[in-house]
Write a protein that binds this DNA or RNA. Sequence first.
DNA 1: TTGCTCCTCACGTCACGTGAGGTGGC
DNA 2: TTGCTCCTCACGTCACGTGAGGTGGC
Lengths: 263, 263
Amino acid sequence: MLTISQLATYAGVTVRAVRHYHHVGLLPEPARTASGYRTYDATAVIRLIQIRTLADAGVPLGRVQELLYAGPEEFAAGVRQIDADLRAEIRRLQENRRRIAALAAGDSLALPASVVGYLGRLRSLGVDGRYVALERGAWIMIAAQAPDVVDASIAKKHAELDDPDMVALYRFLSEAVQWSGDDPRIVDIAILLERLMIRAVEAGEADADGLDDPIVDLLDAMTVESSPVGRRLIEILQSRGWKGWTRIERVPVHAQEVGERTG
Amino acid sequence: MLTISQLATYAGVTVRAVRHYHHVGLLPEPARTASGYRTYDATAVIRLIQIRTLADAGVPLGRVQELLYAGPEEFAAGVRQIDADLRAEIRRLQENRRRIAALAAGDSLALPASVVGYLGRLRSLGVDGRYVALERGAWIMIAAQAPDVVDASIAKKHAELDDPDMVALYRFLSEAVQWSGDDPRIVDIAILLERLMIRAVEAGEADADGLDDPIVDLLDAMTVESSPVGRRLIEILQSRGWKGWTRIERVPVHAQEVGERTG
DNA sequence: TTGCTCCTCACGTCACGTGAGGTGGC
DNA sequence: TTGCTCCTCACGTCACGTGAGGTGGC
């Protein structure tokens, strides 16, 4: 007769594992000595070895139970199923490796390479880090919501940066991050921005940005809260007939008359 | 501002997952409405998308936390580590597939093909299923304890079966399973077995069976309990100067004189 | 008033690991 | 008498799923 640790040793498992198999009914509880020790015979060793053979092959314990009592055909069918599960799991992990590799390649989390390149260009133009962070957030959401429009949008952004006025705007905005909310120069920024917007509208460049309305509102809110300048700038633009920031739009005349109504 | 389900939808996760991330501190708890509803802004969406990007790539949440705050070098190092973990896991699963395939090939659990073949030969000789089951148990333990001696032992067993006397013995034993414990023919079995044993001893065929003593005792106990014939047969052999069953040995004369002492 | 969403516990999953606290066996 | 093994709870792991029971919002 064997003690639990002798049994465990013969089958190459831990004592706790043996108790666990009793608990879940995989291995029947054996007789006990007067002092409560479990005593095992050869059938327990054999059963435990069979259990471990299946479990070591990656069979979940619930299925081990079934397979131990299965006839040859059910057994073969069970084995085929388990092999299919293993194949699926391996494919899943290989897919994970591909994603991990993509993360390592783009230096920034949840952003495709094209966006990373664009943000790099902004930085190299001297745009302030806080402003770049705002842009980055917007692109993370675009990439999550409409991944297929990202590259086209980025290409358009690059084209815009070929315009010296646009570069000037970004430099301006970048300095502005540290201004106070009542700095008179904010009006100059709004005027410059308005000029660029009108030019874009006349060139027919109304771009679908891949964001839905609530997200646009959220990003605007983020801009407003990022600095007093953001809030003031959006107010000034609003007074001049423009709405929003993340997606700037001309407010139609009749809507403009409704004025400061809140939604 | 977003509700929790809107946030979850934007990031493609469940509401419960968002609450879980709050619970473990991955995502900061946001402000609440008067009625206790959580309200989220754009930064929460961005953070949640980043969390999912890493988690979808198989990064454990504990590491996600670290990576979100890591600099570029730590990030790269973390990604390398995770990729190594994934590779190791894939190798493990592929090893599992090999084992599963081995199980499917041998039709019997925890037994190499050679043993399966030998047991098949016993059955084809008309040996009773219960007796084959006893043999099978012994081989499962041998295969677990000393896998490298199995094939050699099986080869020797096959050679033994080429002896017509040995085949006769197995047939005899096979019938005996249903006898009562006081059947006089049990003595005939013992005499036949003794003849074969003496022949084997004289031929110098003392075989190392790959089992250790406690296991041999267990298997003997299993034999004794399998039928009244088993118990009686071992008693008769013992009275004629032999010990055990799974591993039959001649008892030295002086030990024999000590007689019925129990250990 | 009726669904719908939200809230907070809290147990369940999977296969044990890891103490805690106590007792028999050599 | 001193370790060593055994015993039974019972919580912890991992990333949530899944009710239970209750309440605000349209």
